[in-house]
Simulated assay, not measured.
Amino acid sequence: MEIRLINIGFGNIVSANRIVAIVSPESAPIKRIINEARDQGKLVDATYGRRTRAVIITDSDHVILSAVQPETVAHRLVNKESTPAQSEERPDE
């Protein structure tokens, strides 16, 4: 299985294969998920002190906070999937 990485802002990178959901932090259920993850030690704050704009939930129940919009993270994920893997071999010149 190929490991794919996605930039979630400020040079922070997560494994795209492990992402279950990318959601907005505004609703009460998401705020509850954030608080529960904090209590369990499974919260990763990658906002660098900025406002949380996206909450990334992984398959290991880790919750990652990002200062990048959910649409931006999803767009990066989709672009990563649609870009064909480039061969490291160079064509003969």
Rank of each mutant, 00 (worst) to 15 (best):
E2A: 06
E2D: 10
I3W: 06
I3H: 11
R4Q: 12
R4K: 15
I6Y: 08
I6E: 02
N7W: 09
N7H: 15
F10S: 07
G11D: 08
G11T: 00
A16S: 13
A16H: 05
A16M: 10
N17M: 12
N17F: 02
N17Y: 09
N17W: 06
R18F: 01
R18D: 15
V20W: 04
A21L: 06
I22L: 04
I22W: 02
S24I: 03
S24T: 10
P25E: 01
S27Q: 07
S27I: 01
S27R: 11
A28F: 02
P29A: 03
P29D: 07
P29R: 02
I30E: 03
I30D: 05
R32W: 03
R32K: 13
I34T: 04
I34R: 07
R38A: 13
D39T: 13
Q40E: 15
Q40P: 02
G41D: 08
G41H: 11
G41R: 11
K42R: 14
V44P: 00
D45Y: 05
D45W: 01
D45H: 02
A46P: 00
T47V: 08
T47I: 08
T47R: 04
Y48N: 13
T52D: 03
R53Y: 09
A54V: 09
A54F: 05
V55E: 02
I56R: 06
T58C: 11
T58Y: 05
D59E: 15
D59S: 10
H62Y: 15
H62G: 00
V63F: 03
I64W: 11
L65H: 00
S66A: 09
A67K: 05
A67T: 07
A67C: 12
A67N: 10
V68Y: 02
V68N: 00
Q69M: 10
Q69V: 00
P70M: 03
P70N: 00
T72L: 05
V73W: 14
V73P: 05
V73K: 06
A74Q: 14
A74W: 05
A74M: 12
H75M: 13
V78S: 11
N79A: 04
N79T: 08
E81I: 05
E81H: 10
E81T: 03
P84H: 01
A85R: 14
A85E: 11
A85Y: 00
E88C: 09
E88Y: 14
E89Y: 15
E89V: 13
E89A: 14
R90L: 09
R90I: 06
R90V: 08
R90M: 12
D92M: 13
E93R: 07
E93C: 10
E93G: 08
E93T: 09
E93Y: 13
E93P: 14
